[in-house]
Write a protein that binds this DNA or RNA. Sequence first.
DNA 1: CTCGCTATGTTGACACTGTCTACATCCATG
DNA 2: CATGGATGTAGACAGTGTCAACATAGCGAG
Lengths: 207, 207
Amino acid sequence: MPAKRPYHRVNLKQSLLDAAVALIGETGPQAFTLREVARRAGVSHNAPYRHFRDKDDLLAAVAAQGFDRLTESMEQAMAKGRTAAERLRLAGRGYVQFALGSPQHILVMFEEPKLADPRPEHAAPAQRAFQTLLDAIAAAQTEGALPKGDPQRFAVVSWSGVHGLAKLAIGGQLPFDAKQTLEFANYLTGVLAAGMANTVSGGRRRG
Amino acid sequence: MPAKRPYHRVNLKQSLLDAAVALIGETGPQAFTLREVARRAGVSHNAPYRHFRDKDDLLAAVAAQGFDRLTESMEQAMAKGRTAAERLRLAGRGYVQFALGSPQHILVMFEEPKLADPRPEHAAPAQRAFQTLLDAIAAAQTEGALPKGDPQRFAVVSWSGVHGLAKLAIGGQLPFDAKQTLEFANYLTGVLAAGMANTVSGGRRRG
DNA sequence: CTCGCTATGTTGACACTGTCTACATCCATG
DNA sequence: CATGGATGTAGACAGTGTCAACATAGCGAG
């Protein structure tokens, strides 16, 4: 008798997510296709609709998974730091490291405001990642490594720096390979830390 | 007699580019469609192929136009600066200002490495924009506002910072409106300038 | 002025996509 | 064991990028 394929599969949802990440990694998010994902998972072109509302919903799930892993990557990198200032810089390094290792996720996570669908289970991981950064900054302030004041300000500076580096590196716009990019992240976080410690709101150097 | 539409149009190429930018501005680069662009320009769905090799080629042309305007925006902003250090910071402000005013262009310009098609007329404007930044940094070094050494290092730090801020702002990830973002750009460039002036390669603060 | 070449624009076709509706199969629960 | 909800399938439809074939226009050579 022919080995018959099971009608219902176990954990098709996760298989679809994995296939999606793999596909995006190969051809970019533009060429990503629901039907190709279904093909790779070995199901019909309509099976994904039992697990995701539509194409964007699947991508939003990939993004959510990405934010979770980003948080993990930052926390793991921070674990090696002794002082709060050091841990803040390591969080930035973890951000870049994640981006280099999972560019597909970053691309989906920050693809323009198409994500007008704020399903709570998709918004929470992003919030959690940002909170990790905020906590690291608050700790650095408590420690005295950063001036007191609104941590949001420092968070946006830090985020902008590492996010820009990550994006440019992923896009192939920098003359760096992965290892050099990671080394550069060390330098960049140092520049940011020094600048934030010595700069007042208007941007003029403190006397 | 019915007003008959002319068969050959003047400057259809530019009309298509304009329609493309407008369309991307409305619905994002994902929903961008060659056929819709043709519709808006009032021509058949195949007319664009007489002016662009394919869809990506049209987008590459939009990107090239974007890099030209980015260079303009930076140079215009720099014109108001007196010292080289000030001009460098204003270049960053011009970068963010352009991104806020023409998010469609930024989105296309930095959409992942799909641009594996380095047609020279498309690569040159990007190179020119980066050179503008390099020149501003070299001037700041000559002036003594930045340490001597490889300007590329400072260029990547500056670019990462403003690019990250621009991208996050465009993506709606920041709690800022356009005006606040521009003000924040002033602060960010101040942090970067202070940090670059006071940080050595490894990232440790200079004694 | 006419011929004919080339650039430009149009029509029609093809394979592919996202998504809808209707149908098939399975599993758990009674 | 039956039955209903969850899961998977098949087929259809409009819309897309691109190709090939055809139509028109404008311009220079004679």
